[in-house]
């Protein structure tokens, strides 16, 4: 699979990662190289093989639905880029 500049821009947008225009050709080259490499998998016969999500095939453990966390809002917000009156600030979304 070869990716062109248009596809690199589309994937970067899907991932919300800004790529500088001058870097697009190199990303296209590297990503194409990686995809071409991983496609070696296609030759493997996996007919009837169950996909493996967990190395030990263990089910997800459940915990009782009880409150175990304490309120640490101030500690958590102390490391945020921008907060005001206990709220996280972002650029205006609705005019």
């Amino acid at each position: 699979m070869t990716l062109g500049p248009e596809e690199v821009r589309r994937i970067a947008w899907l991932a919300r990662v800004a790529i500088r225009e001058e870097d697009v050709p190199e990303y296209a080259r590297h990503l194409s190289r990686i995809l071409e490499f991983v496609e070696q998998m296609a030759a493997a016969d996996t007919e009837g093989v169950e996909p493996m999500a967990h190395p030990l095939d263990l089910p997800q453990r459940l915990r009782p639905d009880e409150v175990t966390e304490t309120d640490q809002r101030e500690r958590f917000q102390a490391i945020a880029p921008q907060v005001e009156r206990g709220l996280y600030l972002v650029p205006k979304v609705i005019e």
Partner: peptide, 15 residues
């Protein structure tokens, strides 16, 4: 299917 699901099947072959 072509990538992630295929890779998870290959993972079982390796195990």
């Amino acid at each position: 299917d072509a990538y992630y699901l295929k890779a998870q099947k290959v993972r079982r072959l390796i195990r």
